[in-house]
Design a protein around this nucleic acid. Structure first.
Lengths: 217, 217
DNA sequence: TGCGAACCGTAACGTACGGTACGGCTTGCC
DNA sequence: GGCAAGCCGTACCGTACGTTACGGTTCGCA
């Protein structure tokens, strides 16, 4: 499911101490939202403000470093495109959906998306681009090969992988993300996520599965 | 498509002047995002800060009043459930999808959702609830009767209207809203919206259309 | 014409917070 | 041991902004 990655070096040479600081920022971001102060970060991380500014430049630098640090930690599992039969393709899609739902419903993801949305409205949309790149676009980059493999294997039928992915994205996410971002309670249990992933996968297959003779519903 | 509503009195007795002030807030919100100042509002609306505070209490009151004012202005058209045949049902769904896409891709909607998301992270989630109530939930409340009518007429087949609606929501919105909120450029032309609405509707019908004999693809 | 209410423009106040400076402490190295 | 570098804690500065206060003006009304 979720794994720390070592392949993509998105966190450029962070010391253990710096990582601890960024983890403190994450925790603080979950608790207090975007209105965290540098003094609060310093107090929580047991470091001085001078050190914060020396390491991360300014407040925005600290925030972007935090977003990148979190992005380097959480990553949806890659699935090899060797899923030739329908069963393994279905399993891969379900796992993608489940991982994705688990990520976007996590406290840290919600907090990070919130601060990124806030900053997107305030001029410099640095954070928004980073979140988008490590979220929606990273997912597409990982899922498309699977879709293409499914198409090659005659299991899927679509003209454009991008549009197929976007439909899958919509079927999985539906209104979950916007509701969570807007503060709607809606705790997703493990079981509910599994059910949603299976449902979304079945719907996607119903729309984009290759029609090889009549298959009962 | 879009209409001002007079039935639901969501705007509790606002004078013309107050509405003009809130319109100024909307414009300012689109231009500058959440970091608008009370002095900027006063200057733009050509009113004094004292008046702002007398009318709306404080900054949050002004913002909530603005959200409610906008919500009372823009509303997705209601469609009567008298759509008995497949053609009119399809047309209704397409119109809903088109209107919805038009709304969420508008500058004011993006700005309002951004500020609501920001405030949802900062304790009082007043704005988030209001936006959700007038956005996603209002849409559900209007669309569900149509879906139920379609089911009654034997055109649709689903167990729960809520889940059917959520699938429709996902198929229509896909990744559009989160991308726009995060600052991703992606201007939706009138034609693109129409195409997306038609595609989403066809996909929804493919998933939830009643299977009355073999209908080609 | 006189009066009071509402409102405009602006000045002023208090506070919160981003950013900087400085004294003291630990740590590794010569 | 002595020294330099890095860091902690804290005090400090400047500013931006929410909020309040006040004098001057317009407008409806008797």
């Amino acid at each position: 499911m979720l794994q720390a990655n070592a392949d993509i070096d998105n966190s450029q040479a962070l010391t253990e101490r710096q990582q601890a600081v960024l983890d403190a920022v994450l925790r603080l971001l979950v608790e207090e939202g975007d209105n965290l102060t540098m003094t609060a970060v310093a107090r929580r991380a047991s470091c001085s403000k001078e050190t914060l500014y020396k390491w991360f430049g300014d407040r925005d630098g600290l925030l972007t470093a935090t977003v990148q640090w979190q992005a380097s930690k959480v990553r949806v599992a890659a699935v090899d495109g060797r899923g030739l039969d329908l069963a393994s393709l279905t399993a891969s899609l379900e796992r993608f959906a489940s991982d994705w739902l688990k990520v976007i419903s996590s406290d840290t993801s919600i907090a990070l998306n919130r601060v990124a949305v806030s900053h997107a409205g305030s001029g410099k949309d640095n954070l928004g681009a980073v979140v988008l790149e490590n979220g929606r676009f990273a997912l597409a980059k990982r899922l498309k090969p699977v879709l293409e493999a499914g198409k090659k294997a005659g299991l899927l039928d679509f003209a454009d992988a991008e549009t197929a992915f976007r439909s899958f994205f919509g079927l999985v996410g539906r209104d979950v993300q916007i509701r969570l971002l807007l503060g709607d309670r809606l705790e997703l249990t493990e079981a509910a996520i599994g059910g949603d992933a299976a449902r979304a996968t079945q719907q996607f297959l119903a729309l984009f599965g290759a029609k090889t003779g009549p298959q009962g519903h």
